[in-house]
């Protein structure tokens, strides 16, 4: 079965951006993310990171590649081991990626947590269930920042986060791009948050790119029929009563 079919795009190294990949479930966006992360190898075609093919680079030194390209997953409660304290995760990441020796490991982790609006004091000694979904997702982002990556692949990072905290995570991605020059691939099915933070946008359907371009342009005036359908299906506060009127007109 073909999950991702003939997809091509590129991102420029010195121009940090948020690239959003949008599509329905089964459109191949997560498979694409896993190939970029080097978890799956493409059946054909090439993914090139910093001039070298990802699969070759992973085969040569997976560790060094992981330091540069970090994932953030959908459900932070599933991405952390519930029996392991959060500070251990951060310390281990810092030590494994050679960011810190025993002396400065705490400082490195505190800096990463500071970048996401947390502090080491807040997470020290705490288990994942002791934090809210929003806080835990921030901690997951902090963990990804510890290795000083250049590219972050965030697969539906806010779909499990409460509505009132969702925008704070989304805004955080914009800030990381601005302040740390991070390039972010943001995978989502939520057009509204995508409109807010993305510079460029790719709309996928059944493994293929149906439309791509500058995010605001694409979302304001989608050209492809599927993109138009996707935009029309978004329910916002402004869609008040769309179903009510349809019933009344029929009666």
């Amino acid at each position: 079965m073909t999950a991702v079919d003939d997809v091509s795009f590129s991102m420029v190294a010195d121009a940090p951006e948020v690239l959003t990949i949008i599509g329905e479930s089964g459109s191949g966006k997560s498979t694409l993310a896993r190939m970029i992360l080097g978890i799956h190898a493409p059946s054909s075609g090439r993914i090139v990171f910093e001039g070298e093919e990802v699969s070759a680079r992973v085969a040569r030194d997976r560790h060094a590649f992981m330091a540069k390209v970090q994932p953030i997953f959908q459900n932070p409660f599933e991405s952390f081991n519930p029996l392991k304290k959060l500070d251990r995760y951060l310390f281990m990441t810092a030590e494994r990626f050679g960011r810190a020796g025993r002396g400065n490991v705490e400082r490195v982790c505190d800096e990463a947590l500071g970048a996401v609006g947390l502090s080491l004091a807040e997470v020290r000694g705490r288990f994942p269930h002791e934090l809210s979904g929003g806080q835990l997702q921030r901690a997951a982002i902090a963990r990804a920042l510890v290795s000083r990556p250049r590219l972050i692949v965030a697969d539906e990072p806010v779909s499990m986060v409460d509505a009132s905290l969702r925008m704070s995570i989304v805004n955080l991605f914009s800030r990381l791009k601005r302040e740390f020059g991070l390039t972010i691939i943001y995978i989502t099915h939520d057009l509204a948050t995508a409109y807010h933070i993305s510079d460029r946008l790719i709309i996928m359907r059944r493994g293929q790119i149906v439309e791509t371009g500058e995010a605001r342009g694409v979302l304001s005036a989608p050209k492809h029929p599927y993109s138009q359908m996707l935009k029309d299906a978004v329910l916002t506060p402004d869609s008040a009563g769309i179903f009510r009127s349809s019933v009344q007109s029929r009666l």
């Binding site: 806080q135 009132s164 509204a192 409109y195 402004d238």
Partner: peptide, 23 residues
């Protein structure tokens, strides 16, 4: 009021603030 103001909308790119603190 906050819940509704924080909803992102297509066509409006003004900054959305999240509430401080957690439930």
């Amino acid at each position: 009021r906050h819940l509704i103001a924080s909803l992102p909308r297509i066509g409006d790119r003004s900054e959305r603030k999240s509430l401080t603190g957690v439930p």
